[in-house]
Amino acid sequence: MTGYIALSATDIALAAVFLLFNAGLSLSLQLGLERKLLISAARMVVQLLLVGLVLKSVFSLGSPWFTLLIALVMLGFAAREIAARQNRQLAGTWGYSLGAGAMMMSAALVTVFALTAQIRPDPWWSPQFALPLFGMILGNTMTGISLGLDTLHGVLVREQRGVEARLLLGAPRMQALRPVMRDALRSGFTPIINAMAATGVVSLPGMMTGQILSGVDPREAVKYQLLIMFLIGGATGLGVLGAVLASALRLTDARHRLRLDRLRAPRS
């Protein structure tokens, strides 16, 4: 074990050399990517520096309420991201609140479960453990939910005639929507299934890599990674299922009608 090697500002600046090289390349080949590349790199620097400051102060404050507040802000950003990633989203506040509700239900539940039953820091809400864990689970749940909802809404619009044909033949709404919901669930589950299958063979997960780089025994890092992957898988599954089911109910009504009027017009 070599232990933890601290990085200096020069090290980080040096690491950006290749990125700058890419920007130069884009400029000389007139790809038009250099602006986007530099802006997003600058955004990343500012966001991460700020997050570092915020996390440091949250850690040193050690207040459960402040931890909760940060978690809610993260949830809000994730909900906005879910809404933004759908070509057709639910009209009104539903577009935002349904994703937030599904994430709250799944990601928050799983995080609290992991903190109180497995990792058990003292106190259990300790921000040093709670926030990074919540962030990882939230990020993956968010991706799953946005894919699931995007598929559900897109396919429903495309297959409207087929769904209505089943309704007209006397199928209850959940039966009529079943093939579409299956598509939506499959697409929401795909990233986490792929990630689990490829983990360790193709890619070393970022968190595990980070632990190994900071000097932790790889076998310990693997245990942590397994725990995290199970939690992420479970939370994504719950979140996708909850969101797709809720949205399917919202897009039909008690008289078993398809209510595509409750979708907003597509972007683009």
Partner: peptide
């Protein structure tokens, strides 16, 4: 039976 039938 609608004018354009749906299939699934």
């Amino acid at each position: 039976v609608p004018a354009e039938t749906g299939w699934w």
